[in-house]
């Protein structure tokens, strides 16, 4: 029995270090990293500036998944041509980003802004309550339309264009088109955030405000309005993450998606060092790669189902035990 196990593991080890396996794990990891960047980047922006760890972030991703799926189903319909599907997707990007951003702005303005003078714990608690409300509202609406809220809603899967459904040959292995699409979308998003923060005047205000909000105010920056804009941007990004999951067989819209994306987003943001975008990108790649590797091992050799998920939290624990403020962390963030 034991010998068999040893043999199995050495076999698996040998097949892991083949070019095919390594390349496919690499791209799988990058695709997962893109998803992690998408679900975590909005959270990072909000935390970095406002010091608020938004517990409702996952719920907003879930809203984005349902809304995005709905837009795709309505506009694209079943078995579409590629241009229609891709065009519909980018229309959905606009709709989801706009709607969720607006929702986020309203929530910040109406609920969080009145309690900025309290310790950050209260703002975090508020988003926790908000998450309960948003999840339950989603459950009510979804069940009202006869959709099972627990199971993932697969209707949007049929709007996936054929070019993303097939695989592409790349060196020694072939890769699913959807993975490449996710990598591209993740890169675009990171590029967009980077450009916003470093190349625009507003981005400069955001960076100044997240380092020293009081000084920024004394220089004439309306930091509260910057908060609202960043919260809106953060929720918009959360929504886009949900949309991107709509074509992924492994995810799909469901109410539990809120908690399922919130926890990985926390992990990525925390091990990156709260609030730094660079840290979040690096952490996403780290977590994505570990996820891909452990998933491969689970598929090939190890029977423990929870392996990838357990490693997700193990990385969190190990990184924090070694670097108590995450990879790129500074001791104080936000502050207002």
């Amino acid at each position: 029995m034991i010998e068999q196990g040893v043999l199995l593991y050495t076999d698996a080890l040998a097949s892991f270090f083949t070019p095919e396996a390594l390349v496919s794990v690499l791209f799988d990891g990058l695709a997962k990293a893109s998803l992690y960047v998408m679900i975590a980047s909005g959270l990072t922006l909000v935390f970095g500036l406002m010091g608020v760890l938004n517990f409702a972030h996952g719920s907003l991703t879930m809203f984005g998944a349902y809304l995005g799926g709905l837009v795709l189903v309505l506009i694209v319909g079943g078995s579409p041509t590629d241009p229609v599907a891709l065009g519909g997707f980018f229309l959905a990007v606009v709709v989801v980003f706009g709607a969720l951003g607006l929702l986020g702005g309203v929530l910040e303005w109406g609920l969080i802004r009145p309690i900025y003078d309290r310790p950050p714990l209260y703002q975090i608690l508020l988003t926790f309550g908000l998450a309960l409300i948003l999840d339950e509202l989603a459950r009510i609406v979804v069940s009202f339309y006869g959709i099972q809220p627990i199971a993932s809603w697969q209707a949007a899967l049929s709007t996936k264009p054929a070019i993303l459904g097939r695989t592409y040959d790349l060196g020694p292995t072939s890769l699913p088109g959807l993975e490449l699409f996710q990598i591209g979308f993740g890169l675009l998003t990171v590029g967009f955030i980077w450009a916003f923060l470093t190349q625009t005047r507003y981005g400069l205000y955001v960076r100044a405000g997240s380092q020293d909000a009081e000084m920024a105010r004394a220089l004439g920056i309306n930091v509260r309005r910057v908060f609202t804009v960043i919260f809106a941007l953060g929720t918009g990004l959360a929504g886009l993450a949900g949309l991107l999951l709509a074509w992924d067989q492994a995810w799909g819209a469901s109410v539990p998606l809120a908690a399922e994306t919130l926890l990985p987003a926390f992990v990525v943001v925390i091990i990156g060092g709260l609030g730094t975008v660079r840290g979040t990108v690096v952490a996403s790649v780290l977590v994505g790669m570990v996820d891909a590797i452990t998933t491969w091992w689970f598929n090939e050799a190890i029977t423990f189902t929870g392996l990838p998920e357990m490693f997700l939290f193990l990385i969190l624990v190990i990184v924090l035990a070694l670097k108590p403020q995450g990879l790129y962390g500074v001791s104080e963030v936000g502050g207002h």
Partner: peptide, 27 residues
């Protein structure tokens, strides 16, 4: 609000300098 005070034309050079550490000099 403080930002409105600043916009009215009052500048502040604080005691502990309060430079934005992670912004460049130009920024």
């Amino acid at each position: 609000d403080t930002h409105a005070v600043a916009q009215a034309g009052i500048g502040w050079i604080p005691e502990d300098r309060r430079i934005f550490d992670q912004l460049t000099v130009a920024e």
